[in-house]
């Protein structure tokens, strides 16, 4: 057994007393704090982070998307006129918005977490009382804000340039949110596993981008030969693009509910996996 406090502790009596008081105070804070204020603080900081590089995180994706819109919308639009019974411009906007949502949600969470990991700043978050769920909520929340804000700007500008209005607003909003949440979660997972910048760039450049472009952003798969139609149907992002297109215009190559199902599955699976990684501390606390 260890000797009594006075014998083993060299700290003088008054110091011990003030230390006891301090411990009681800290325990009080610990029992009171459930981490939600902290979650909010982390969310705000993650929003501030992308706002500090707004040129890169907001302006640049908006401009790129609008460039697609102008180039494809007006060049192809004048020839195609109508596709699936709606003006080509209306057809194009949901596809471009989906492209933008996926990119921004994924890039925001994956890069923020990855850079924090590389520069060691992630330690600041790991030593806090925040739970895995709270950390995820903050990172995902900020990514959703970035993705939805850029999406809305694009939609606004497109509307001003003559794109139609939203056919099913509720469906559209739910669909946009699920997309942003799903890919932000995916970004967290990729950031945790990645060890180099190459690895983290791999997915967006060789997987997300091609699948999105081949998922019918610019065209309807009914315009493809039967073989390529069948191949396209294996692409999950096709269902997402068509789902949003259904919400915004009412037309879709495939059932929008499949898209909703895929997104729900993405959110659940990625959510559970991200939580599991943070909970076990894989790659971050080892």
């Amino acid at each position: 057994m260890k000797p009594p406090l006075e014998a083993s502790s060299p700290a003088s009596e008054p110091t011990t007393a003030s230390a006891r008081r301090k411990i009681a105070g800290a325990r009080k804070n610990a029992l009171r704090n459930h981490g939600w204020r902290g979650t909010y603080a982390l969310l705000v900081r993650e929003i501030q982070r992308f706002m500090k590089i707004a040129g890169q995180s907001i302006v640049s994706p908006v401009l790129t998307t609008l460039l697609y819109f102008v180039v494809f919308g007006f060049s192809l639009g004048s020839r195609l006129q109508e596709i699936e019974g709606i003006p080509y411009i209306d057809f194009l906007v949901p596809g471009l918005m989906m492209l933008n949502l996926i990119n921004n949600a994924f890039l925001n969470s994956s890069f923020s977490l990855f850079i924090a990991k590389i520069h060691g700043a992630i330690v600041d978050v790991l030593v806090t009382p925040l739970t895995p769920l709270q950390i995820i909520m903050a990172y995902v929340g900020a990514s959703v804000v970035r993705a939805v804000v850029t999406g809305l700007i694009i939609w606004l500008v497109a509307s001003l340039m003559g794109a139609g209005t939203v056919a099913y607003p509720l469906f559209t909003i739910v669909f946009m949110l699920l997309t942003a949440i799903g890919f932000a979660l995916f970004g967290i997972i990729v950031a945790i596993y990645s060890e180099t910048f190459d690895q983290i760039n791999l997915l967006p450049s060789f997987f997300l981008m091609p699948l999105t472009f081949l998922g019918g952003v610019f065209y309807s798969i009914s315009m493809l030969p039967p073989f390529w139609q069948a191949v396209s149907l294996a692409n999950p992002i096709l269902y997402m693009i068509n789902g949003l297109r259904y919400g915004m215009t009412g037309v879709s190559d495939v059932s929008p509910w499949i898209g909703l199902g895929i997104l729900t599955a993405l959110v659940l699976l990625c959510g559970l996996h991200a939580w599991h990684l943070l909970h076990t501390g894989k790659k971050l606390r080892e």
């Binding site: 981490g35 204020r37 902290g38 500090k52 520069h119 700043a121 330690v123 600041d124 806090t128």
Partner: peptide, 24 residues
């Protein structure tokens, strides 16, 4: 921590403040 870290996106004061924020 022993290992020096930094968050290149933020000013010094901001990082100190938000660290307090995380703890409520």
């Amino acid at each position: 921590p022993q290992e020096l870290n930094f968050d290149g996106f933020f000013q010094s004061l901001e990082t100190v403040s938000s660290q307090g924020g995380y703890f409520g």
